[in-house]
Nucleic acid binder design. Structure first.
Lengths: 246, 246
DNA sequence: CACACCCGTTGACCCAAGTCAACCAACATT
DNA sequence: AATGTTGGTTGACTTGGGTCAACGGGTGTG
């Protein structure tokens, strides 16, 4: 059992207008004037320690969260204990959108490392969306992007083979690290093989074997959580031409 | 190859205030005054014939659609031709939310039977959301519900066995037919075994076999697309206790 | 800084679902 | 009513990924 939520709300005002994550986060595409108004919206920051929950399924929904530092996973649990990881989130990405529909969260959000989020009270967001032109549109785009992402995961889970899934996962990570100014080809994963497996609908052994296979084939170099993508094009080819198929 | 979009926009004004689908659709929870304002929003209806596309991946995004009659599937295609059905939609449900993020649709929407939708111009919706209190919230809830639904599908695809997936699918259909005033236990499916299979990440033969198995076990009676659920509780049990597992 | 414990890797074996094929029932077309 | 076509069922066989088990290397905690 994991320890329960040790919330640390420090009073620090988070200013979107000062934040270097603007192009990745909710304020994307907004004017300077709009941006300064947005600073009112983001109430406080909250630190979440590794392995601790930002929220849990069933928690009443009050706010959405923008990741300022660190990373998270979201998962849903079945009564019999089976876990499905529904996503991994990095800086600038928004957590908690699932809660709007029923006013309670429907999944768990767990920090993969010591992390910090900006708390955006939902009622304030609603209100401010009426006032700030670009905010409403941008918020809709964030939600829509999540829907599109989810469809991609369905494609992955429903129609791809184990190695294709892992290749798609690695390319997706690469792309997101790149967008954050990191190397497209070398990074440290924050999640375990088991979590990757849960996300990809595979067992951890299968994930591990696929990593080894990619290494044998010269596509990547892995050591534990450190991944070096040696042949981006090769990985992409893997996804498109369903090789084993006739 | 399917024939291309034969659009039939008839000038008929669709009045939300008159529509019997309000409790299932976008206007849910709005006051009478708000509702009458909403009538301006819904421009026209559009008929879509069976097997025809309401929109295609890549089409520029202009509007979302509320299903007035009939049903649809949405799917995404991989370069190599693999199809993943991402959802089946019934009356009152909203199509096209995927298009907001990039201003182009990212999936295909195909009518499973001759159908009719209400066309809701997105720019008008944006504008009117600023004015009508309840509309913005309701729209956010619709999007959020879609995200939650997608997470459920991921659970299904990532963590369930073939028979569990089909049981979950049948129970979901039952629940949605019930919400529309139809029998919870007897209905006609509008999609083929292959489409069900694609949605559930299974081959059509596996779907067919699972149907037969359920029939042998007295859980359902099937004949072609007609399904009679004989033991709702039994089907639910199937999902929860991952029987084969240790 | 030592010692668990967790995480990752690998091998041997197994089984659920996929593949291939044959056949039949509906339904649409003429 | 005849015929072609599509959709569904079932059987025999194959296989990709799951299961079980053993082991070794990291790393975070006391």
């Amino acid at each position: 059992m994991r320890a329960s939520v040790p919330i640390t709300v420090d009073g620090l005002k988070s200013a979107c207008s000062q934040c270097n994550l603007v192009e990745l986060c909710l304020p994307f595409g907004m004017s300077d004037r709009e941006l300064s108004r947005l600073d009112e919206l983001v109430g406080a920051r909250r630190k979440v320690k590794r392995q601790h929950n930002l929220y849990r399924a069933g928690d009443s929904f009050e706010a959405i969260y923008a990741i300022r530092a660190g990373s998270f996973k979201t998962d849903v649990l079945l009564e019999d204990g089976r876990e499905q990881v529904t996503g991994f989130q990095m800086t600038g990405e928004i957590l908690g959108l699932d809660g709007i529909s029923t006013e309670a969260h429907s999944c768990n959000a767990v920090a993969l490392e010591d992390s910090e989020v900006c708390v955006i009270a939902y009622d304030k967001l609603e209100q401010m969306s009426h006032e700030i032109e670009g905010l409403q549109l941008q918020f809709h785009k964030v939600m829509s992007r999540e829907i599109v992402r989810d469809h991609g995961v369905m494609m992955l889970l429903g129609s791809m083979r184990a190695e294709e899934r892992l290749a798609a996962f690695l390319l997706n990570m690469s792309q997101r690290f790149t967008a954050r100014g990191f190397s497209p080809s070398e990074f440290n994963l924050r999640m375990t093989r088991e979590e990757i497996g849960s996300y990809l609908g595979l067992k951890l052994e299968t994930v591990s074997r696929a990593f080894s296979r990619f290494q044998e084939d010269g596509l990547i170099a892995v050591q534990q959580k450190h991944v070096h993508l040696l042949d981006l094009a090769g990985l992409k080819r893997l996804i498109q031409h369903q090789h084993g198929a006739r």
